Amino acid sequence: MKALSSSRTIDVKGRQSRVTLRPPVEPMLAQAVESVPGPGVAGELAFERKFDGYRVLLFTPAGPGGVLLLQTRRGALIQDRFPDLVAAADKLPDGVVLDGELVVWDTKAGQLSFEGLQRRTAARGRRSTRALAASLPAFFIAFDILQQDGSELIDYPYRQRRLRLEALFALHRLTSPWTLCPMTSDLIKAQQWLESWTEISGVEGIVVKAVNQPYRPGHRGWYKLRRRNTTEAIIGAITGTLTRPQLLLLGRRDVSGHLRSIGRTAPLRAELARLVGGNVNAAEAGHPWEGRRFASAWGSRDVLDVTLVRPELVAEISADTAVDQGGVFRHPVRFKRLRLDVTAEEVPLFSTGPSTATG
Rank of each mutant, 00 (worst) to 15 (best):
I235K: 00
T72P: 00
P24S: 13
L77Q: 04
L248F: 03
V97Q: 00
R310G: 05
A87F: 09
E345V: 06
F329E: 03
T358M: 08
P61V: 07
F59K: 01
Q246T: 14
R252M: 12
S151R: 14
G75D: 09
P39I: 11
S176T: 14
T352L: 10
M183L: 11
K108R: 15
R159Q: 15
L268R: 02
R173L: 13
A322D: 12
A131T: 13
A133L: 09
A190I: 05
S5G: 14
G257L: 13
G359C: 11
W222E: 00
H287D: 06
Y156G: 01
F59N: 01
M183G: 05
A285Q: 07
R74A: 15
D90I: 12
L338E: 07
G236R: 04
V323A: 00
E152K: 11
T179G: 07
S176H: 15
V86G: 02
L308W: 04
E316D: 13
L58N: 01
L102E: 00
R73N: 05
S128Q: 14
R120V: 08
S135I: 07
S151Q: 15
T9D: 13
L132M: 11
T129V: 15
R301A: 15
R22N: 12
D106F: 05
R264Y: 08
R226I: 01
R127L: 06
G95I: 00
T243C: 12
G327M: 04
L146T: 07
R81A: 09
L194Q: 07
A285L: 13
L171M: 14
P245H: 11
S351Q: 13
L68A: 04
P332L: 08
I141N: 00
K50T: 04
R22C: 02
L308Y: 04
G95E: 00
Q191I: 11
E204M: 03
R253W: 04
V207S: 02
T198V: 12
H172L: 11
Q118T: 07
T343G: 13
L225Y: 04
R15Q: 15
V276L: 03
V104F: 04
R74W: 05
H287S: 09
D324V: 05
A270M: 02
P157H: 12
F47L: 12
A87I: 08
T198P: 02
L57K: 00
P157I: 03
R18V: 12
G327A: 08
G100A: 10
D80F: 09
I317M: 06
G75F: 00
P288H: 02
R269E: 15
P245A: 07
G116Q: 03
R130Q: 11
S6A: 13
A319T: 08
E290L: 06
S151K: 07
R49H: 11
S351L: 08
S256N: 14
G251R: 01
Q79P: 10
P27Y: 00
E204A: 06
R22F: 10
R73P: 09
D341F: 05
E232K: 07
Q79R: 08
